[in-house]
């Protein structure tokens, strides 16, 4: 299972970098999204792929019954997804406005700030 996840993570990173190297800014954003997802999956994998119940404490007990999955890795991913969602929303607004201003979906035409 671990090695399969490792391959998926690697594939996602590769796809993300390929997309980011394209000239189109829309593809750039898609690449950024894939990169975030790859990082999340990496946390998930390296946090340990254990099968276990959700770490919920039943009523009246002091600790969960039986083995539970590590909740921290999942909490980290959830937080990262939330943040990624906010950043992605911003990036979409940004490329929309950049498209309006520049009039092209092409990185090669964005040379105003080059030095």
């Amino acid at each position: 299972m671990e090695s399969m996840m490792a391959l998926v993570v690697g594939g996602l990173y590769a796809a993300a970098i390929y997309m980011m190297l394209r000239r189109s800014i829309v593809k750039l954003v898609i690449g950024l999204v894939l990169l975030g997802n790859a990082a999340n999956l990496l946390i998930f994998t390296s946090g340990g792929l254990t099968r276990g119940a959700p770490p919920l404490v039943p009523d009246g007990a002091a600790m969960p019954a039986g083995a539970v999955a590590d909740p921290l890795a999942q909490a980290l991913i959830l937080t990262a997804i939330v943040i990624g969602f906010g950043v992605l929303a911003f990036a979409v607004v940004l490329i929309h406005r950049a498209y309006e201003v520049v009039g092209a979906d092409d990185m090669d035409r964005m040379k105003d700030t080059d030095t």
Partner: peptide
Amino acid sequence: ALFLSAIGLLYG
């Protein structure tokens, strides 16, 4: 994203 990946590996 690199920061996040590094965090994942560090936690692992």
